[in-house]
Write a protein that binds this DNA or RNA. Sequence first.
RNA 1: CGGGGUGUAGCGUAGCCUGGUAUCGCGCCACAUUUGGGAUGUGGAGGUCGUAGGUUCAAAUCCUGCCACCCCGACCA
Length: 491
Amino acid sequence: MDIKKVKRSDNYSAWYNSLVKNADLAEHSDVKGCMVIKPYGYAIWEKMQADLDRRFKETGHQNAYFPLFIPKSFFTKEASHVDGFAKECAVVTHYRLKVDPITKEIVVDPDAKLEEELIVRPTSETIIWNSYRSWIKSYRDLPLLINQWANVVRWEMRTRLFLRTTEFLWQEGHTAHATADEAIGETKQMLDVYADFAENILAVPVIKGVKSANERFAGAIETYCIEGLMQDGKALQMGTSHFLGQNFAKAFDVKYVTKENKQEYVWATSWGVSTRLMGALIMSHSDDEGLVLPPNLAPIQVVIIPIFRKEEEKILVLEKAKEIQKVLKSKHISVKLDDRDNLTPGFKFAEYELKGVPVRIAIGPRDVQNESVEVARRDTKEKQVMSVVDIENKIEHLLSQIQKNIFQKALDYRDEHITAVNTWDEFLDALENKTGFVSAHWDGTTETEIKIKEMTKATIRCIPLNNKLEDGKCVLTGNASTQRVLFAKSY
RNA sequence: CGGGGUGUAGCGUAGCCUGGUAUCGCGCCACAUUUGGGAUGUGGAGGUCGUAGGUUCAAAUCCUGCCACCCCGACCA
């Protein structure tokens, strides 16, 4: 393995790209803007999926699957929705290829034109709500709580591995409710699920909030979000949960009969997180040595590296290593014993650091002799010699300490990078020199928000939930304001 | 869409200006010695030089067209 070291401080974006490739998470495919997620990267995504899926089911949701293709007519039924997505849709127009009789090349058969074009889903509200029309007849059918794991396509002009790819993997929840209150409750509940997952599993602290009108999802009444802060001081939207009101119910004529035998439109939510979370994970914790994975997501939590010179040492060391592997496994710790004999220990140390394995155990003849092992943690790079007595409990404890430490470190960084400002000069200074979130008064108009974006590239990331109300003056216009909002440059 | 760049072995590259049998490193295979922080030696395998055409006795190299991807920006519910 020949690793070109790119320093995080020199070029954050080059560092990120080389990390994704070198840690074997993903690579660019030959299709523009699309990536191949490699087994190690996919294993992390699968762990995210498994944990989220469990949480969705615990909150009463069921999984289902809807088609990849959406008839154009469905897609255009909700006006603001189509406005929001029209510019980035892949469209299927034909269903057959043929050999051109003259050039002998494979070409699209012009005779195989579809009557109605199919949109490759950028999100599935429309096709799902088209089904819900026939699924929902009575108040007894509500709430309808569905989630789908799927791929979607958004034809973005500019892409970045995991953060914004043309095709990406995600889950999208789509629920229907009898009342607005219940739907809003669902929206907030799922936001809490996301926030809890982000902080306790990804170890990425997030701010829960609502989007400004300008940043709201196309077709939503209110968009709730969780916002994270990456190590370069840019914000990342990590998940959204939308209260859709009756917009889609009206567009797709989804009504139910109440107890009182009245026809009412249902109330909707949708919510999603994507493989972008992989980007958040990488950018929040990693360093110049490579990936740093929180134990709760690491496909390999502990790697054991045996060290030996002679054949008889090898036998002894491997025997002890297997013993340790076994007791760790009894604690449901995922352990890899790397007994490859063509690589030196030093090489393996570096390799597992690159891959972010939280704990490394080295065991050599000396350790076998002393009934000890050398334990190294990835997050702090600390090494210590530990007795093998009760090793499984010690490692289990260490893993949970590492999980906490990684989160705390990210939290400290995040909190240090929220700057309250009162003047335009302070605003610019904080944004340029300190980076991160800037907490400032805003007059509440889209006009001002857009002006600020044009001048600074910063957008309103969110209006934090449970925000303190205080009188103030808009940082740009000086107009009256009732609360601070969070601005930042973002991905 | 604008600006910049790249395309040569699995990966990373040299060669291109000044045309003449394809360079080096990593990785891979074999053997030996090694193994507590990215081992060493010896031998070996691996190439339609992105693609199509042109110039030429001869093209990775010069000319023309095309394609693809990457980076920066615009865009991004």
